[in-house]
Design a binder for these strands. Structure first.
Lengths: 200, 200
DNA sequence: CATTATAGTGAACGAAAGGTCACTTGTCAA
DNA sequence: TTGACAAGTGACCTTTCGTTCACTATAATG
């Protein structure tokens, strides 16, 4: 025992599924990338679909652990500039962390096929960010850093464009730098509109 | 001759590729959906990949014809309310037109595999809408319907959230009505922020 | 009417897919 | 030392895939 092959299979599956999709991946290649022969994989998972479901379980658990609970919320920014800094820090992680980026790709590719992937995709791409920033903006309005407005609407207006550029980075990685700059510019523009006048 | 089978194959391919992806589609099913036996397809296309390329050609040409030229631009709205009306009309078409919706799905599924799909996806999901509304907003600023600002930035801030909700409709069609309402609410909110004061 | 190209059929093929199984190897507990 | 078990191998099975091909029916052409 004391073997991590079962986990390594999931890692390899994430990599291959995110590049070629579930249907476009075969377990011969998958196992070869681990230095195994394909029958070896079946010692750990009973089928290709079982690998997929285990991977999805892991992605769902990871998301719940990392973004699901309210207490994991980043601190409310102390200034408008802090919002931009917080945003850029989060975006940088999300774009450059290989595992998170591959998770997004997998969800993109399988969202029409698997109901659980669909649900998780909506969280990753839309509601997760919106909910998070709804709380942040509520806090900022209480601190009088943002003009009073519907925080959920502002969060949607703030996160959706950022999410669109993250998708662009996934699709065309060579545009990552430009997209990052655009996110920062957008964040500043957002603050210039919604930031409470009187705060430096 | 006088046969439209070649076109019908592309229609069926769009349908199947948009649901199951390229790798997840087999030509037995594809031809069966046309009342053919699979070998019949090869009288019209020499391979599965040739079908895919022809479909992509058609999607690219369709996009260029419909959204590519500047003269196809919708008229600049005459009032802020008109912007919402124009937006809702465009979104309604884009969401409910089966062919356009399937095109988006196919591009979503194949964007990481095919460079041409990748390029078209970026146009469909990001730059196309942004460019279009950059022109519209420029016109609205000239008419003093919008506060003077960077029209490209406003267009990005306006279209990206709408695009996110269109994606939601593709992913979870049962949420279409809610998404539509949210788009309309967002449009009005946008106008309440950027609309030039003094216009009713 | 004879001809010829076109659209479609059905059987067959080789390759590749997912999956099974008898067997070997290495590790640990009794 | 031995027994048991988990991990990995390689041959093999079945199904399905994309593709080919000889053939037929049809409809337009000379």
């Amino acid at each position: 025992m004391a073997n991590d092959t079962k986990e390594r299979i999931l890692e390899a599956a994430l990599e291959m599924f995110s590049q070629n999709g579930y249907a476009g991946t075969n377990i011969r290649e998958l196992s070869a990338s681990l230095g195994l022969v394909k029958s070896g994989v079946y010692k750990h998972y009973e089928s290709k679909e079982a690998i997929w479901n285990a991977l999805l379980d892991q992605m769902i658990a990871y998301y719940a652990d990392r973004f699901g609970s309210a207490d994991r919320l980043p601190p409310v920014p102390d200034s408008p500039e802090d919002l931009t800094r917080l945003t850029m820090r989060m975006v940088n992680v999300t774009v450059h962390d290989k595992k998170i980026a591959m998770t997004r790709k997998v969800l993109t590719l399988e969202q029409f096929r698997d109901p659980r992937a669909r649900e998780l995709a909506t969280k990753h791409f839309l509601t997760g960010l919106t909910d998070m920033f709804t709380r942040i903006f509520t806090g900022m309005m209480e601190k009088a850093l943002l003009k009073k407005d519907d925080p959920a609407m502002l969060a949607f207006a703030y996160t959706a464009p950022i999410s669109a550029l993250i998708h662009l980075c996934d699709r065309e990685p060579e545009k990552t730098d430009g997209a990052m700059a655009q996110i920062e510019a957008f964040s500043r523009h957002f603050i210039s509109i919604y930031g409470e006048a009187g705060h430096e």
